[in-house]
Design a binder for these strands. Structure first.
Ligand SMILES: NC(=O)c1ccc[n+]([C@@H]2O[C@H](COP(=O)([O-])OP(=O)(O)OC[C@H]3O[C@@H](n4cnc5c(N)ncnc54)[C@H](O)[C@@H]3O)[C@@H](O)[C@H]2O)c1
Ligand SMILES: NC(=O)c1ccc[n+]([C@@H]2O[C@H](COP(=O)([O-])OP(=O)(O)OC[C@H]3O[C@@H](n4cnc5c(N)ncnc54)[C@H](O)[C@@H]3O)[C@@H](O)[C@H]2O)c1
Lengths: 224, 224
DNA sequence: CCGAGCTTGTGCACGCGTTCTCAAAGTGTG
DNA sequence: CACACTTTGAGAACGCGTGCACAAGCTCGG
């Protein structure tokens, strides 16, 4: 049975699968063979009933009275998340943030191989970051196609975000992770996730203020 | 009427207020006096009815047949988000990511002043990043209290995250933005938001895979 | 082979958030 | 001043996600 043939997986569940994946990886390293939903919930920081419901969307992989086989579950989640294969990734905008991302080892460990670095600054083009040389934005289309890049990371200033997103999409990229604080739209059939640190800080500020002026408590958890 | 005296604002709304804030800032710079919910929705990338409902939680600031006064609305949202004051911020873990954050100008522009940089590496302590010298983790408590830091940014390896979070909380920090890919808990009365880039990529990977194997489309928007 | 003890899988109720819809309330033109 | 037009604000219905609660199913000791 292929990943796509199963019943639809709720978005909230998809966002939690990586948490289970991480928890199971750590558990597997400790040579633990099976794990209960309660234990997994604890490691992932969620509710046990939620774990069971989430996993039930993937199929019935648990054994009542015993729990889930760590290795098997890990394999099923990997398959579902597409972590059994490598994804070539391009980063566009090699400034402060882009460089940090390019130097980060944690991505490769999960199968996301940064293969292409792109920037518009001529002074930066040709410059090496780790093993990779920065490529000109003029060559975006060519180099993205060459490496069959499906996932692009956008770390340019906000003003360039929509333009770069359009170019990435035109070059065949169908998933974009956007760090630029800008509303940026992509056509149907392309995914875009936004990470906006200023927004995160402003949300924290909101609850911080509420705490200062009243006894209001922020919600304990949030959707990813 | 103080921010806290009004009716409870849904979390989803709080997460969108920064979007409206940004859109209104850009609109205000163009000398536009009023804005309709429809236009604001377009700029923020959301639904117009949602904009109206969100803003109605803050009070009735619109004029029927006209729209919202840009300056006034901006002021109200700023007040609600706590952006009328400055928040001193500390960054702990001055590696790849911590450095990028420390060098980022966008935070100061919104009232988040990075005043303290903390790391455990003796080779890094004393080293200057921009205007700031890196302080030892041993002095965390002292320096955090000295600067009345309320918001902490956690950019250490995952293994140190819980320990650092505990220290921050002990020193009086009540809001934490966590970049470490680790489940990390804080006591009641402290907010913690998590930004996990590997999870974002894995979610993209999930929908990427679905698109490849079937015609399944990812959801168009998500909760912040 | 039976019964005690665990743990999964899911039906169900509830609450939150989204969106449709429309009356109410404003503007402005003749 | 009346009427056409615009836009807000909120009621209501709906859908999704969460978490309780429990039957079903497995293990293991005796
Ligand atoms: N640095 C941070 O910690 C941080 C934090 C939050 C958000 N951000 C956001 O991330 C983005 C990048 O931040 P940064 O600090 O790295 O900025 P930066 O100015 O250091 O880097 C931006 C890079 O993008 C390149 N660029 C500009 N236009 C381009 C284009 N059209 N095509 C390709 N490359 C182009 C520039 O040459 C530069 O190298 C910004 O949108 C910023 O708001 C950064
Ligand atoms: N760099 C990235 O682009 C990136 C992307 C995604 C996630 N992350 C996560 O962000 C975190 C930081 O990443 P990085 O690439 O900057 O790592 P890094 O190794 O470059 O930097 C980590 C820094 O934390 C310091 N540190 C370690 N233990 C500490 C402690 N107990 N107290 C204070 N400081 C301590 C280290 O001395 C080092 O300077 C990691 O958890 C990483 O997984 C980073």
């Amino acid at each position: 049975m292929t990943a796509a043939s199963r019943r639809r997986i709720p978005e909230a569940t998809v966002a939690r699968l990586p948490l289970y994946y991480r928890a199971l990886m750590e558990t597997g390293e400790r040579q633990v063979a099976t794990i209960s939903s309660e234990r997994l919930a604890e490691l992932a920081g969620v509710n046990a009933a939620k774990v069971r419901k989430d996993l039930s969307y993937l199929g019935s992989y648990g054994t009542r009275g015993v729990g889930y086989d760590v290795e098997y579950l890990l394999h099923e989640i990997s398959r579902e998340l597409g972590l059994t294969r490598d994804w070539p990734v391009a980063i566009v905008g090699i400034g402060n943030l882009g460089r940090a991302l390019a130097n980060y080892r944690g991505f490769g460990a999960r199968g996301f191989r940064v293969e292409v670095l792109i920037d518009a600054d001529p002074a930066l083009v040709g410059h090496r970051i780790g093993e990779l040389a920065v490529v000109s934005i003029d060559d975006l289309d060519e180099v993205v196609r060459e490496h069959s890049i499906a996932i692009g990371i956008l770390a340019t200033p906000a003003s360039a975000a929509q333009d770069v997103a359009d170019r990435l999409v035109a070059a065949g990229v169908t998933s974009i992770l956007n760090f630029a604080p800008a509303v940026c739209s992509v056509p149907e059939g392309v995914s875009m996730r936004k990470v906006d640190l200023a927004i995160e800080l402003q949300i924290l500020s909101f609850y911080q203020l509420r705490r200062a002026t009243s006894g209001a408590t922020p919600p304990r958890e949030r959707a990813g």
